[in-house]
Design a protein around this nucleic acid. Structure first.
Lengths: 233, 233
DNA sequence: ACCTGAACACCGTTCAAGT
DNA sequence: ACCTGAACACCGTTCAAGT
């Protein structure tokens, strides 16, 4: 019982909604814009305050601390993920549509990848997605805990594939990176492993974007095949 | 061509190895200990300097900046992952042994989960693991790019499963968290989704540790089954 | 009820200066 | 070759004080 108490915006009672002054929504919206534009390191309470032409510390009236603000912003990302209705397209198609949607959304908000390992996804939008995913896997024929396990497996795959992708993107400077430079860097790092060097010189390695999409597809069908197999047993 | 240049410790020429004074190894070792003990947020260049009873900025002689130090520490984590020899145990057994090993290692160094999305894994130990994994999947029968795709799929699954687990652990304060409190928190967050509330009251939900291990196993066999299916086609 | 500024205890990093 | 301290430009957060 020595650990810190568990806290989260989603647990605390929010302040009563009022009309005057700034609103939490406005603040969160501005925070998301700032995060999209400058990344997780680019968001500071002071800069966000300035952007809203408020004093540096006014935000603390609406939000307990920066972590809670990030929880709020994080949940907005979940709002952008779409889960198709499995009654209309079949669970496999729903599942892959969701997987692609999750990937696109996280790539669009790279800072969110950093939060996956830091904040539990307890917000209403994250819960909404989880709820619809449960329905999807139930419709597929999963029962009991297997519903959650299938859910976790698919989510893990998508995030696990996408998170390191973001590491690459940001390391290369997000845009206009030099393919040759990257290849040289990797070649140098792999110098002791002839097997890996060979890989780097393989066809397709100079279009990493296309390569990553093929890779994602390969893994996704593997995961879905594996899940389908669970249903047969 | 407007993006930042790509930089990494593994690309820069290191300083010549010398005997006197502090060494890079010593610094990295201390950094890892600090990270294990206090987390990513607990490591500062100043505190690390003090710990080595050096001036606050002496470390900059050995390391270009904090990010490079983290790259070095990150690679130490990869050193702890073990890939069995697939010639002795068969690829499926090797693959699951590796998966469990990766999961254990990351859980032991929770800060590393934050780095997966931030730093490309280009260090020698990460390369070593990747190299051995390639051999494993080649032995399994994969060829060409499929070797890398299978590799990426398994890695993605393991990290994707483990990263959010860490978010939970740290949110609950790492140790001695209150299961009842946690359940109440989740129940509150899921209040609008009866389907999910039902899940929370399911058997086994009060031993999250055991639950997560079952979940990991479920997903792992799914992924391996899916990969095996790729071999048949 | 909402907002402010000053203040506190921190950061990473640079750089001239020391030995 | 190695280490230092001062200095710069930042942080998140608290809190008494204002309206």
């Amino acid at each position: 019982m020595t650990g810190k108490q568990f806290t989260s915006v989603w647990i605390r009672e929010p302040r009563k909604a009022t009309s005057p002054g700034r609103s939490r929504e406005e603040i969160v919206r501005a925070a998301v814009e700032m995060l999209d534009g400058e990344g997780l390191g680019g968001l500071s309470m002071r800069k966000l305050g300035a952007r809203l032409s408020a004093g540096a510390t006014s935000l603390y009236w609406y939000v307990a601390n920066k972590d809670e603000l990030l929880e709020l912003a994080y949940d907005e990302v979940w709002a952008e993920m779409t889960v198709p209705d499995p009654d209309r397209v079949g669970w496999r198609d729903s599942a892959s549509a969701l997987a692609y949607s999750m990937r696109r959304v996280v790539l669009r908000h790279p800072w969110s990848a950093d939060l996956i390992g830091r904040l539990p996804a307890l917000g209403p939008h994250a819960m909404g997605v989880a709820d619809r995913m449960r329905k999807m896997f139930r419709a597929a024929g999963f029962t009991g805990v297997d519903i959650d396990f299938a859910n976790a497996t698919l989510t893990a795959y998508v995030f696990g594939m996408t998170i390191p992708e973001i590491a690459w993107n940001t390391a290369m400077g997000d845009q206009g990176y030099d393919a040759g430079e990257m290849r040289a860097a990797v070649a140098k790092a792999a110098a002791d492993h002839p097997d890996m060097l060979e890989r780097i010189n393989m066809a397709g390695y100079d279009d990493p974007q296309a390569m990553r999409e093929m890779c994602f597809d390969f893994g996704l069908v593997s995961v879905l095949d594996g899940l389908e197999r669970r249903l047969a047993t």
